[in-house]
Simulated assay, not measured.
Amino acid sequence: MRAAQTGRRAAAGRVRPQHRRTGGRERGGATICLLAVGLVFVLGGLFGAGVGAARMARQQARVAADFGALAGAAQALRDELAACAQAAEIVAANGARLVHCRLDGLDVLVTAELTVEPLPGLRQAATATARAGPLRG
């Protein structure tokens, strides 16, 4: 009996933590909110990366079209075939594809296209047109 009384006294001397009861409704709510905020940041970052990649592709298509038109204008006195062949070579060297090329007098009009995949499964084509020829006064 002494052992039982000693056990009760020892148990009575322990300090039990007091837990506030919330009914279990709010447990883990902050975790869900934190995950939702993190998901918003990730989706915003992906969207920003996609827009940035599309803008870079547009600029690269412009550069390819400009250089292609300048290279074609250097061959404009020979014939349209030579001018467009030179333009196609320069456009391809800049990572784009020649879509359209024509000689208009001594001016060369070049349209270049660059396909970019900013996000997996999402393809976009950036197209740019440029004209180059002799200076007119």
Rank of each mutant, 00 (worst) to 15 (best):
M1P: 15
M1V: 07
Q5N: 10
Q5D: 10
G7F: 00
G7K: 04
A10T: 03
A10D: 02
A11I: 04
A12C: 14
R16P: 01
P17A: 03
Q18M: 12
R20G: 15
R20M: 10
R21C: 11
T22G: 15
G24S: 07
R25N: 10
R25C: 11
E26H: 09
R27W: 01
G28T: 00
A30G: 14
A30P: 14
T31G: 15
I32H: 12
I32S: 15
C33A: 12
L34S: 14
L34Y: 07
L35G: 15
A36S: 12
L39Y: 07
V42I: 05
L43H: 01
G44I: 04
G44Q: 05
F47N: 10
F47H: 09
F47L: 13
G50D: 04
V51Y: 06
V51D: 11
V51F: 08
G52E: 00
G52V: 04
A54P: 13
M56G: 15
A57D: 07
R58C: 10
R62L: 11
R62Y: 03
V63F: 09
A64D: 00
D66W: 07
D66K: 12
D66H: 13
G68E: 01
A69D: 05
L70M: 12
A71L: 09
G72H: 00
Q75D: 05
A76Y: 05
L77D: 06
R78C: 15
R78I: 08
D79E: 08
A82Q: 10
A83D: 11
A85I: 02
Q86V: 06
A87H: 06
I90H: 11
N94Y: 03
A96M: 08
A96K: 08
L98D: 03
H100S: 15
C101Y: 02
L103D: 10
D104C: 15
L106P: 00
D107S: 13
D107I: 03
V108S: 02
V108W: 04
L109R: 14
V110A: 14
V110C: 15
V110E: 06
T111L: 11
E113C: 14
L114T: 06
L114F: 08
L114R: 04
E117V: 01
E117G: 03
P118D: 10
P120Y: 03
G121I: 01
R123K: 11
R123M: 05
R123W: 01
A126C: 12
A128Q: 06
R131L: 12
R131T: 03
A132D: 00
A132L: 01
G133E: 05
P134I: 00
